[in-house]
């Protein structure tokens, strides 16, 4: 194949039944990840990012959609649920305090996946655990510690070692640095980056903080209310966001420049409830460029340049529109 993809999913849909009607958590999501590449998945709480992660892992059954992973042919994604988890997929959760068993030592935490799916034991197992810990920058002396004896950054390193134990081809990172201090955050991102260079693992990096995205990701997908509103290469999207929501997310990231003090470009309101999705474009109620067309017709995801897509009737052009937010 000329253009290999590691993972491709198409038209994933998942809705939850609620007393107030169906909640569409994922509404036709399609994307693909190439080997060794990092795809950032960005959006506010409630945009469907974590649901997508659970669906990919098979921890949650999807309603419809196809998935092709690691050279196999596409199969309905719903089949993944209630099956043995795919060894090629790993996950690092947001909060290591709650994702690591407090009653297990680091040694057994890292050894657990190895015991479950390989016949390593005895010294060979210990050696493998030590190698894994060293890869994430922790020495042998951490083996006999419990999670509460570690700092947040060290715990997250253990979680990463655990996820890497089975040498996954794709690692899902669900806000891996959100629970960490700013100074530790960059260390973890650097570690992930160097691990990727070493092993060629692909990452699906889920976050709501655009500030960290371009340190680690190659491609970006912006989600809003279960749909993709913009996608493309990180540098292209950051240089010229076409969807007003992407622009608002970029503007919300605090900068280190004190000259910006007291200048707030805020996005009003919050994500509407996915149960009563607004008619037309779901972002329209919060959008400052909305017209009547936006509230009536739902914009489709259009491919602009190769690899670049956005769903908006009035995309921010590289012209006067784009400057309107400039103060």
């Amino acid at each position: 194949m000329t253009n290999p993809t590691l993972l491709s999913v198409s038209d994933v849909r998942k809705s939850f039944a609620t007393p107030r009607g169906p909640l569409k958590a994922l509404d036709g999501v399609s994307f693909s990840i190439k080997p060794g590449e990092t795809l950032a998945l960005v959006g506010e709480s409630g945009s469907g990012k974590s649901t997508l992660a659970l669906v990919l892992l098979g921890l949650l059954g999807a309603d419809s959609g196809m998935l092709a992973f690691d050279g196999r042919s596409a199969a309905p994604i719903a089949d993944r649920a209630h099956r043995r988890p795919d060894r090629g997929l790993g996950i690092v959760f947001q909060n290591p305090h709650s994702s690591l068993n407090p009653r297990m030592k680091v040694r057994s935490l890292v050894a657990e996946p190895l015991k479950a799916s390989s016949d390593l034991h005895g010294n060979a197992l210990t050696d493998r655990v030590v190698t894994l810990l060293e890869q994430v920058g922790l020495g042998r002396q951490y083996m006999e510690r419990y999670p509460h004896e570690l700092s947040g950054g060290q715990m997250q390193r253990v979680a990463i070692a655990r996820a890497l134990a089975l040498e996954p081809k794709l690692l899902i990172l669900d806000e891996p640095t959100a629970a960490l201090d700013v100074s530790v955050r960059m260390q973890i991102l650097k570690l992930l980056k160097s691990l990727q260079e070493h092993h060629g693992t692909s990452y699906l990096y889920i976050t709501h903080d655009l500030g960290t995205v371009d340190h680690i990701a190659d491609q970006i997908i912006v989600m809003y209310l279960g749909r993709i509103v913009e996608s493309g290469r990180v540098q292209d999207v950051f240089a010229a966001p076409r969807h007003p929501y992407t622009r608002a997310l970029l503007d919300a990231v605090p900068t280190l420049d004190p000259r910006n003090r007291g200048v707030f470009v805020t996005l009003d309101g919050e994500v509407p409830s996915p149960v009563d999705r607004p008619s037309g474009c779901s972002f329209a109620p919060r959008c400052r460029w909305k017209t009547r067309r936006c509230t009536e017709i739902d914009p489709a995801l259009e491919v602009a340049d190769p690899g670049r897509a956005f769903a908006c009737h009035h995309p921010l052009a590289s012209g006067p529109d784009g400057n309107e937010l400039d103060h």
Binding site: R247, T255, L256, R259, N260, V265
Partner: peptide
């Protein structure tokens, strides 16, 4: 140093005297 800035080159935007956006 640890501050993650949009647009990678934090120095670049500082030099331009513009916000991260």
């Amino acid at each position: 140093e640890a501050f993650p800035a949009v647009g990678r080159g934090q120095q670049t935007f500082k030099a331009q005297g513009k916000p991260a956006c």
